[in-house]
Simulated assay, not measured.
Amino acid sequence: MINISNLTKSFSRKIAVNDLSFQVEPGEVLGFLGPNGAGKSTTMKMLTGFISPTSGSASILGFDIRTQRLNAQRQMGYLPEGAPCYGNMTVMGFLDFIAGVRGYRGSERQERVDRAINLLELGGVYRQTIETLSKGFTRRVGLAQAIMHDPKVLILDEPTDGLDPNQKQQVRELIQGFGKSKIVIISTHILEEVSAICSRALIINNGRLLADSTPAELESRCRYHHAVTLQADRPLDLLALAVLPGVAGIEENHAEKSLTVLARPGEVIFPQISALIAAKGWQMKKLDLEQGRLDEVFKRLTQGEMV
């Protein structure tokens, strides 16, 4: 388990992380969210022992990050923001170097390197120097070094930054696989990533914890929760939609020529809308039920509009 209690970090007069407390259990993939400057990277640097907290405590699988730093770090794989690597080394040379630093020797060292290259699909570039790689491949090299020693805890800062859509999907599936047996913490600004792979999400701003819940529960706080979006060949009867039981209002999207019918809190309006469509004989191009929009919840929380 990761246990963080009243963690605080100050830089001169600025408080970057302010009395932060939470726990993470094995089998959880935790999405760590916040706007730029919220304190995400600072928290991760404290968790991994790269900077010391001003006050409070953090432990990794029982090892205190201040007093047992090396033991705590041995439990972790860390992908920092920017994934710093030695640019003049080849991918193979760099990963072999990391395996050596981790203490592997002989055949096990080569097995660890080969496994990391295969998992991150680096076989096509393993002879290239890192400085010649694209941003996406460099990111994958950074992730390869983080998983080299099969750690029990993975702390990943923007793990899919710079990856193309296919690479993102592959890395997300890899992270989901890790999350079945490991503790995984992901700092990201890509909200769809949280919905896709995280079992839990924390939102912070100005160093303070604003929300700690599942992505689905956070989406349910959105005014678009259980909303229905419609698009038809011809204009629809807005009044007939507006007077349906449970309807809170209607938003028109003129650019897409569509309507979004909002539900009152706790109401489900899809059956009534479906029945009206059948009764009116409307021909629909689009009929979507929304679960909510995490980006809207994120915006309202970080702007102080929601508690």
Rank of each mutant, 00 (worst) to 15 (best):
M306Y: 13
S57T: 15
G77S: 03
S181Q: 11
T188F: 09
A275N: 03
G27A: 04
K40L: 10
L210E: 07
S57C: 06
T54M: 00
A279M: 12
V24M: 05
G39R: 13
Q272T: 07
Y126G: 07
L238A: 01
G136A: 07
D288A: 01
R293K: 14
R13Y: 08
Q291D: 11
F137R: 06
L209I: 02
A201R: 00
E121S: 12
M46K: 02
F270W: 15
A232M: 09
G62V: 13
T302S: 07
I197M: 00
D288R: 09
T188I: 13
M148S: 06
L276T: 15
E296G: 03
D19Q: 03
S274P: 01
P235L: 01
G136R: 04
L218V: 09
Q231C: 11
T48A: 07
G124Y: 14
T42R: 01
Q167M: 13
T129H: 09
G82S: 07
L7D: 05
N206R: 12
M148W: 01
N3G: 01
M1W: 11
Q75V: 10
G304P: 09
R109W: 09
I4C: 06
K9C: 00
D295F: 03
L122P: 03
I190L: 12
D114N: 10
G246H: 08
K280H: 00
A72I: 04
T302R: 09
I51C: 02
P265H: 00
D288K: 11
